[in-house]
Simulated assay, not measured.
Amino acid sequence: MRGLLWAGLRGVAIVVGALMGCAAWSAQANAQPFPSRPITLIVPFAAGGPTDTLARILSERIAAELRTNVVVENVAGASGSIAGARVARATPDGTTITIGHWGTHVLNGAILKLPYDVVSDFEPVAMIAMGTQLIVGRTSLEANDLKGLIAWLKANSGKATAGTSGAGTGAHVAAVFFKDKTGTDFQFVPYRGAGPAMIDLVAGQIDIMFDQAANSLAHVKSGAIKAFAVTSPTRLASAPDIPTVDEAGLPGLYISYWHGIWAPKNTPKEIVAKLNAAVVAVLAEAAVKRRFAELGQEIPPPDQQTPAALAAFQQAETEKWWPIVKAANIKAE
């Protein structure tokens, strides 16, 4: 009997020892300095689009700052919400982060039924860019200015086509507002990202786009597409010949297409701080500033690059746009 009791106690001791060893290993693993593994930067749209372009400019330099690999992964579909769900469910250890914008982290919450919350299920890391949209069209369009485009759309009511990054995206919302303000009507052609849509615009397969300057500007400068206006109150420094919507005859159609970086909810503050420091350092580099400017992107001042500043700005944009979107009854078709 004593032998059996001793054997049982010995077995318990072995199990307890093993559990304690696992706990010690886990604690040691958690204590490893961040980052101890490569980081995956999720882009919620197809490769080649404006968000993807910004991500790839940043990723290499962030990798150098953090002394690890940063892998850019495109997870396209459902206006960026497939990527959003994946990041929201990811382990909050800083190794999975996402780049997003006005569409993915504001509009989606008002338009789509999501398995996550666009505000509370993420930790803001940094605001990285303030951009705008261009109203652009295929080169063979008869119109050469915005007033001419509006007249052409009215003459071809219901027949013209506008490419978007998907139903409910910023391009779609901007086009809906344009329709409302001008009394025009045209068909939407949704794509899995702005990159594929731009390919068809350049090829003349669709007529117009309400597109981020980061995606369109190079094609405008090369003569592959036409630009009718920029959706901001001031002209772009990198394209001063493109008139504002105010100058072109459609005052007040302002769309600010800002970008930020987020981590999953409950990512430790010290990890968020390290990610933020790396991003801020990269945004201060002259080469990055120059590349962003070429894409029509303005880097926010340092006091607007903090996690708190991104959180406050996102909240303000949510309070501004959700009532507008819902009043317009914009749906993900």
Rank of each mutant, 00 (worst) to 15 (best):
P92S: 10
A174I: 06
L114D: 10
V119G: 04
L112C: 03
E142G: 07
D93N: 12
H101W: 15
Y116Q: 12
L107P: 00
L153Y: 00
M130D: 07
S79H: 15
I97Y: 02
V71I: 13
K159R: 14
F122L: 11
G131L: 01
W102G: 00
S79P: 07
A126M: 09
K159D: 13
I97Q: 04
P124H: 07
K179H: 10
V106H: 00
D121M: 09
R89Q: 14
G131C: 04
E142P: 11
E123W: 05
F188P: 06
A90V: 11
I150G: 01
D93S: 04
V87P: 04
T161S: 13
D145G: 10
P196F: 06
L149Y: 00
L114V: 15
V75N: 02
H101R: 12
F186K: 05
D93Y: 09
A129T: 12
G168F: 04
T96E: 07
G193W: 03
G195K: 01
R89H: 11
V125L: 06
A110S: 10
G148E: 02
D185I: 14
F186Q: 03
L134H: 12
T182K: 04
W152V: 08
A194I: 03
A160N: 01
A162C: 08
K159A: 13
A83I: 09
V75T: 10
A78Y: 11
L134C: 13
H105E: 09
K147S: 12
P196L: 09
R138H: 12
K154I: 14
G103H: 02
T139D: 12
F188H: 13
G84V: 07
G103S: 15
M198C: 10
M127K: 07
D180L: 13
T169M: 05
N69I: 15
T104L: 01
G103Q: 03
D117S: 14
F178I: 11
S165N: 09
V176E: 08
G137Q: 02
A174W: 03
T182F: 09
A143W: 06
L66G: 02
T91M: 13
A78W: 05
G100Q: 01
V72N: 12
K113G: 07
V70Q: 04
V70H: 05
S140G: 11
I150W: 01
A129M: 12
V71P: 03
Q133V: 10
N108H: 03
A76W: 04
T91L: 14
V71T: 15
A88K: 05
A90H: 11
V71D: 15
S157F: 06
N144P: 08
G84Q: 08
V173A: 06
G183D: 07
V75Q: 03
Q187E: 11
P92Y: 10
A129G: 14
G94M: 05
T104H: 06
L114A: 11
V72W: 12
G158Y: 08
V87N: 06
A155K: 14
L112N: 08
Q187W: 02
G148T: 02
A197P: 04
S81I: 02
G100W: 04
P190W: 08
W102Y: 13
P115C: 12
A78R: 15
N156K: 12
A78C: 11
V189N: 09
N74V: 03
T169L: 03
G103I: 06
